[in-house]
C-alpha cells in the first residue's frame, strides 16, 4: 500500500497522494453529502411518515401517502391526483415536442448567418434563457389581456366572453411553457446544427430524395446529440414546473409541481408532499430510461 509511485512528474508515496486528494475532495463533497444527498434520503423516509393533526410529522410508517397519491382516499377511489400526474406528463411531452419543432428552423436560421453576426443572433436566444422565469411568465398577462388583439380575436369568434383575458387557461399554460423551454432545446440543438455536414444533405438532394427523407436520414442523425440534451433539459424541468401553471393556469389547470407546492405551503402536509415528490422522481427517472433506450435505437439506424 505504501509503495512509492510517480504521479505526473512527482515522486511520492501512494498514501500521501491519497491523503492530499481527500484534502481537495472533502470540503465540497462533504457539503454536497450533507445538503444534497442526506436531504434526498430524508425526503424518501418522510414520504412514508404520517401527518399529525397540526401539520407536524408523526413517525408512523406506512404506504398511506402513496395510496393517497394513487387515488385511494377516505371516500373511496378518485382519479384526481392521477389525473394531475397524467396531465403533467402530457404537458411536458407537448411542450417538448413543440419546442423541438420550433427550434429546428430557428437553429437553421442562425447557423445560416455569416460568422460575424451569428453570435449576435445566438445571444438573442440566450437572453430569454437566462431571464427570470417569474418575469417571463407574468409577461404573458399583458399579451393575453382583454385589451390586446389576441383576446379580442378570441372574443370575436366566441371562444371567450368579451372583456375577459385569455388566462387562466390550458392554452395560456401551453404558451407559457413553450416560450419558457424553447431556448432549452434551441441552444444545445444549435451546437449540433452548427457542425452539420451539409454535403450529406446535398448528396441526398442530388439523389432526388424527398424533404422528409432528407431530414430523417441526413439531418436528424447528425443533430441527435444536441437534440437529446435539449429534450432532457426540457422534459425533466417541464414536468416539475410550478410557476407557469400557478400564474397562467390557476386552479383550473394544476400540475404536479403545484400539488407539491401546496403540500409544503397551505396544506402543510410534508409527508404527502414528499410522496408526490417521489412520484415525480419516479416519472422523471422512468422517462429518462425510456428515452435512453429509445435514442439508442435511433443511434443504430
Amino acid at each position: 500500500m505504501n509503495k512509492l509511485m510517480i504521479w505526473y512528474g512527482e515522486l511520492l508515496s501512494q498514501k500521501s497522494l491519497i491523503k492530499r486528494g481527500f484534502l481537495f475532495l472533502t470540503p465540497g463533497m462533504l457539503w454536497l453529502i450533507i445538503f444534497l444527498v442526506l436531504p434526498g434520503l430524508i425526503l424518501i423516509v418522510v414520504s412514508f411518515a404520517t401527518r399529525g393533526s397540526y401539520g407536524e410529522l408523526v413517525w408512523e410508517f406506512s404506504f398511506e401517502n402513496y395510496k393517497r397519491l394513487l387515488g385511494y382516499g377516505i371516500f373511496g377511489w378518485t382519479p384526481d391526483y392521477l389525473l394531475i400526474l397524467l396531465r403533467s406528463v402530457i404537458v411536458a411531452i407537448v411542450t417538448t415536442a413543440l419546442s423541438v419543432l420550433l427550434s429546428y428552423p430557428l437553429c437553421f436560421f442562425i447557423a445560416g448567418k455569416p460568422e460575424r453576426t451569428r453570435y449576435l443572433w445566438l445571444t438573442i436566444v440566450i437572453i430569454p434563457f437566462w431571464t427570470n422565469m417569474v418575469i417571463r411568465t407574468y409577461a404573458w398577462f399583458l399579451i393575453l389581456a382583454p385589451e390586446m388583439p389576441f383576446a379580442r380575436i378570441a372574443a370575436f369568434f366566441k371562444l371567450i366572453s368579451p372583456g375577459m383575458p385569455l388566462y387562466p387557461s390550458a392554452f395560456a399554460v401551453y404558451l407559457g411553457m413553450i416560450s419558457m423551454f424553447l431556448p432549452f432545446v434551441a441552444l444545445p440543438l444549435f451546437s449540433s446544427v452548427e457542425r452539420l455536414d451539409w454535403t450529406l444533405v446535398e448528396a441526398a438532394q442530388d439523389l432526388y430524395s424527398s424533404n422528409v427523407r432528407i431530414f430523417m436520414h441526413a439531418i436528424l442523425p447528425q443533430t441527435l446529440p444536441g437534440l437529446s440534451v435539449g429534450v432532457i433539459l426540457t422534459f425533466v424541468p417541464a414536468m416539475g414546473m410550478f410557476v407557469v401553471p400557478d400564474l397562467l393556469g390557476g386552479a383550473k389547470y394544476m400540475l404536479v409541481g403545484n400539488l407539491i407546492q401546496q403540500q409544503f405551503g397551505t396544506s402543510r402536509d410534508w409527508a404527502f408532499g414528499a410522496a408526490i415528490s417521489m412520484g415525480l422522481m419516479v416519472l422523471t427517472m422512468f422517462s429518462l430510461y425510456l428515452y435512453k433506450r429509445k435514442s439508442k435505437g435511433v443511434d443504430l439506424i
Binding site: F35, L36, I42, F242, A274, S277, T284
Partner: peptide, 23 residues
C-alpha cells in the same frame, strides 16, 4: 452526486431542503 442538481427537478430539491431545514 455532481450531476444530481442537473437532473433532479428543482422542486424536488426544494422540497428536500424544506424537510432538511425542518430537522
Amino acid at each position: 452526486i455532481l450531476h444530481l442538481p442537473v437532473i433532479i427537478p428543482d422542486i424536488i430539491f426544494a422540497a428536500a431542503m424544506v424537510v432538511a431545514f425542518g430537522f
